[in-house]
Simulated assay, not measured.
Amino acid sequence: MTRGPTLPAHHLPYLPKPLDAFNTAPADEARALLLHCLHSPRWSDRIADHRPYPDPESLLAAADEAAYDLSPADLAEALAGEPLPELPEDTYSAAHTALSAAHAAYEARFGHAFVIYLGDVPPGEVIDRILEAIRSRLANDPEEERVTAAEELRRLARGRLLVQLRGARPASLCGCRHTGATSHNAPATGR
């Protein structure tokens, strides 16, 4: 079978890759984007100050390392910045009541927001997974829960960073809402 003539290539304007945009953004924009991922100035400063990153894997490794190095005060600050999770619109009121009661019990016991990474959970299972995790983690002692919450924050930050970088544009590197990364469809959710 013979092919017809090939059309000339269309030249599209150069659009930088999201990592390139992040690497070359002004420091305050990079820090603002990072604060949307994890509300810790120390974490965001550390990652922004070590730019440029050669590839996304290097950026994610740096984000993980910086999250592991958070002090208890940094962790408390990051937890304080976590929003409530957005639930599917068709969630019935009894689920909201159960979640509110569970969140209140958790915060009364541990003194901070409940956080959980839900990036791999199907939307229809979000409520059950949150309730199950809160009930299970209420049995933790405070130190064990601090370690668990720190790991969940690290996973949240990593997932949010991936979402941010997928949509980053040079002119508006930090143009997303913090709560947008916490919906049931995004890879993260907070208290």
Rank of each mutant, 00 (worst) to 15 (best):
M1L: 06
R3W: 11
R3D: 13
G4W: 09
P5T: 04
P5W: 07
P8T: 04
H11P: 01
L15K: 10
L15A: 14
D20I: 05
D20R: 11
F22T: 01
N23W: 11
N23L: 08
T24Q: 14
A25Q: 01
P26F: 00
D28E: 14
A30Q: 05
A30E: 04
L34H: 07
L35R: 15
C37K: 02
P41K: 09
W43L: 03
W43Y: 10
W43K: 07
R46H: 14
A48E: 12
H50F: 05
P52C: 10
D55C: 11
L59E: 09
A61R: 14
A63D: 06
D64S: 10
E65Q: 15
E65P: 00
Y68N: 13
L75Q: 12
A78G: 10
L79W: 03
L79N: 05
E82C: 07
P83W: 05
P88A: 09
E89V: 06
D90F: 07
S93V: 07
A94R: 14
H96M: 07
H96E: 10
T97F: 11
A98L: 14
S100Q: 13
A101L: 11
A102Q: 06
A105M: 03
Y106D: 06
E107C: 02
R109G: 00
G111H: 06
A113Q: 12
G119D: 09
D120S: 14
P122D: 07
P122E: 07
P122V: 06
I127Q: 12
I127W: 03
I130Y: 15
I130E: 13
L131M: 07
L131H: 06
L131C: 11
E132M: 05
A139Y: 01
A139M: 03
P142T: 01
E143W: 00
E144R: 09
E145A: 03
V147Q: 15
A157H: 08
V163N: 12
Q164W: 07
R166D: 15
R169C: 04
P170C: 06
A171F: 02
A171L: 11
L173T: 03
C174F: 07
T179V: 11
G180C: 06
H184G: 00
H184A: 03
T189V: 02
G190S: 01
G190L: 04
G190W: 02
